[in-house]
Design a binder for these strands. Structure first.
Lengths: 237, 237
DNA sequence: CCAGTAAATTAGGTTAGGCTAATAATCTGG
DNA sequence: CCAGATTATTAGCCTAACCTAATTTACTGG
């Protein structure tokens, strides 16, 4: 079997474009999806199919090809897990995605709701050179406007020690680190000033209905039901 | 025959994604190539094949499909010419391309040489919304840094009244409007400060060898051979 | 005006990445 | 521990875009 790209090729094949070429947009999407649903474990055909809105047999098919490319370990009926190179590839894509989102939000006036779709297309079209220049332009941010960490150019990703606001305890002081990306949730939270970076004091946590009451830096109180409290991630202060 | 996109569809099919969808990157490239080699005339299979580095039979094939899509008029052995919609499509793409180039050069520190390839990929990935926000961000420029006019959002393109410096006459005062996009030419001209916007006085035009001597705004003299004089486009002042 | 060349087309093949229908493997609850 | 449900795979197709080889059409100069 011939390796598809990045293979260790000898002699004249070295600069053969077919060997060096970037992964296709499709391959990138699969690798990212596997990372998202499985982290460092194995992703099932079904989960990846659902996330990408693709039929399961197409996923099985791609798993085989990804393995030939050296991006995943795949065993029939056992799912696929990323290799080191697959993980690097996923994080490169996520870096691109989050930097692009940051640019769209901070410089082009996009709203939280519009940003995702555009970034989803652009992330496949930009080069590494573009990505690093954009990072420079943006001042090398460590997280995107959602509060999600931006992987470094070398592929390292800051560990995420945040937890859902719903799991905080009364009296705790926490800082919002990120919010889920459901558009309507996003809009509601934005309207109430509950954005990443915001400092909160937890006033009351009701176990019965999961409603949590917090006070923000301006002394404003907010009562959040379970769905919202689960979509707001915080870090202890 | 079923129309591929933008067809006048009745009833429920109206919002069928397959009907509304954007042209593929390939289709966009063909339409742009036809515009570039033929303007409003007919483009030959060969010219398009050469410009896109694609085999002629592939072009014939695509001509047929472009016609089904309503983007060109095509007659066997006669070449393809853009329809009104094809022309609009081409100009939309060119607008995207030139705005992106402007951004890369002015804000991300790209050099003239690097810019083309990146823009060539990005132009297929950005939405109309992105394009208009980028235009806003850039202050709605009328031309890109090469001096090429940027088509307006409505598809209108300022007429180009520039001519090669080689055709200027002694004593004429002209302003550089654009320079060809051959990288080495670009580099040479840039090093000598011969960039779009620059005002020149034509000192001497030698018919024998085509060498033209000009003086720039700083009193600096430049003698340009025929190839260079043909790559520098100017407008009378 | 016609023969040779240049250009275009037809015929047939490939690859990536999708799909559905049918079948097989695995898991789970009684 | 096994039957039904869930999940995965296989088999077989399809489309968009490319390719090469062979053939046909159009052009052009003597």
């Amino acid at each position: 079997m011939i390796e598809r790209f990045w293979s260790i090729s000898i002699g004249a094949g070295m600069d053969d474009p077919a060997v060096i070429r970037h992964p296709s947009a499709s391959v990138e999407d699969y690798v990212k999806a596997i990372w998202e649903v499985a982290g460092s474990g194995a992703a099932s055909t079904k989960d990846v199919a659902e996330r990408l809105s693709i039929a399961p047999p197409s996923v099985t098919n791609m798993f085989v090809r990804l393995q030939e490319m050296g991006l995943v370990e795949y065993e029939r009926y056992r799912g696929a897990s990323l290799t080191r190179r697959g993980r690097e590839e996923a994080l490169r894509l996520i870096r691109r995605h989050r930097l692009i989102e940051t640019f769209l939000l901070e410089h082009l006036g996009y709203s939280w709701r519009e940003v995702h779709e555009e970034a989803e297309r652009l992330e496949h079209a930009v080069s590494d050179g573009f990505t690093e220049r954009l990072a420079e332009f943006l001042g090398h941010p460590g997280q995107d406007p959602h509060g999600d960490p931006i992987p470094a150019a070398d592929g390292s990703l800051a560990p995420d020690d945040s937890f859902p606001l719903g799991e905080a305890t009364a009296g705790q002081r926490v800082r919002i680190s990120k919010v889920g990306d459901d558009p309507s949730t996003l809009e509601y939270l934005g309207d109430h000033g509950l954005v990443p970076g915001r400092l909160l004091s937890v006033r009351e946590v009701r176990d019965l209905d999961g409603v949590i009451t917090v006070e923000d830096e301006d002394g404003e109180s907010h009562a959040l039901g379970a769905p919202l409290a689960g979509a707001v991630f915080v870090r202890g202060e």
